[in-house]
Write a protein that binds this DNA or RNA. Structure first.
Lengths: 187, 187
DNA sequence: ATTGATTACGAACGATTGTTCGTTTGCAAA
DNA sequence: TTTGCAAACGAACAATCGTTCGTAATCAAT
């Protein structure tokens, strides 16, 4: 039986707390109570509150970016790439729903320069997906809706899995969602 | 030239502030500054901070519910109803993007009993949409994905219009989005 | 048993929070 | 011009915020 490092316990409890109350409304005293500490003791493990948010946001950003790297190595057709992206989002959401919620909803409370960096990362990620969509349109595989409309519709439609999925088998979920999204994009 | 009632000016500035900073991080002194008042003066017009959030949330909830009422009077087929719901969401989002953002993202900061009431309203709304989807599936017009999966995918995919739409003509936007969503749902 | 480092603590800090209160200002009706 | 009411204000309230600091407890290695 290996004991989890306290630092990790704190990060996980913080993610749950941020999810429930939102970052701003979550107090360090709340967080301390959840890990059986006093607020001041937290600072033996972390430097500041925002540091927790930073880790949550950038760890998840890295997951998406590295996932996309692999996908673009592995698949060449826009359709296969897009389907793999859908699976990527679903798998990440199912693997750590709490942390993904914070990543999705609380990033705006990052302070500069982290906020700027985060926005830049996301913009790059979205641009790469946009390129895939445009390539699919050029080769006649995708319908010719406005590319950013297709992108945004796809991305946001993947943002409910983490907090609402009703206990479906992951495999059924992946199949259903990819059918719903790609059904609207494929020509 | 009619002057806007100060109360309304406050509500609109509050919506923008809540959108930018989030409800919890938005202070009454921030809000006061934006309407050229001191914080204490706000209380000549409102009773408390949460009252503003309540109005934003329930006003928008009413728009959706009444919109759905009209739709179900006007259309009978599940497909026509669902398309009309898509248009409803887009039109509301385009009409008042700021207030819709707050409605979408900040409702969780309502206090009981308003929080409970709000959740109940939303649950009822979603149940009515679920019934439409199930009816469409029974009559063979919709694919047989898990109904809640179809519902959630559709609803969340409608939640980017308010903050990201790149200046498309509303008509093109309506056409593209409904094609994307319905393309995945229709058999 | 002694050391040394890590972890936990209570107390307190200045800052900011939402809100109240008594008073003053501004304006419209009389 | 006087009256009366709504709007705006400064000052202050208790509460809570993130964080710091000096000290005490804990624990592993010597």
């Amino acid at each position: 039986m290996v004991r989890k490092p306290k630092k990790q316990v704190i990060y996980e409890a913080a993610a749950r707390l941020f999810q429930e109350k939102g970052y701003s409304a979550a107090s360090m005293r709340d967080l301390a109570e959840r890990v059986n500490l006093k607020a001041s003791s937290l600072y033996s493990h972390i430097r500041k509150k925002e540091e927790i948010l930073q880790k949550i946001c950038f760890d998840n950003a890295r997951r998406f970016l590295e996932g996309l790297d692999e996908i673009q190595q592995q698949f060449s057709s826009p359709l296969a790439q897009l389907e793999a992206v859908i699976f990527l989002h679903i798998d990440i959401a199912l693997d750590d729903p709490t942390s993904i919620t914070v990543f999705n909803d609380e990033w705006k409370h990052l302070e500069d320069p982290y906020l700027k960096d985060f926005v830049k990362l996301r913009k790059n990620y979205e641009q790469r997906l946009l390129d895939i969509i445009q390539e699919g349109q050029s080769s006649g595989v995708f319908t010719t809706v406005t590319p950013t409309t297709a992108l945004n519709t796809m991305l946001t439609s993947l943002r409910w899995v983490h907090y609402k999925h009703a206990g479906d088998e992951p495999e059924k979920l992946r199949k259903d969602i990819s059918a719903l999204i790609l059904g609207g994009i494929k020509v």
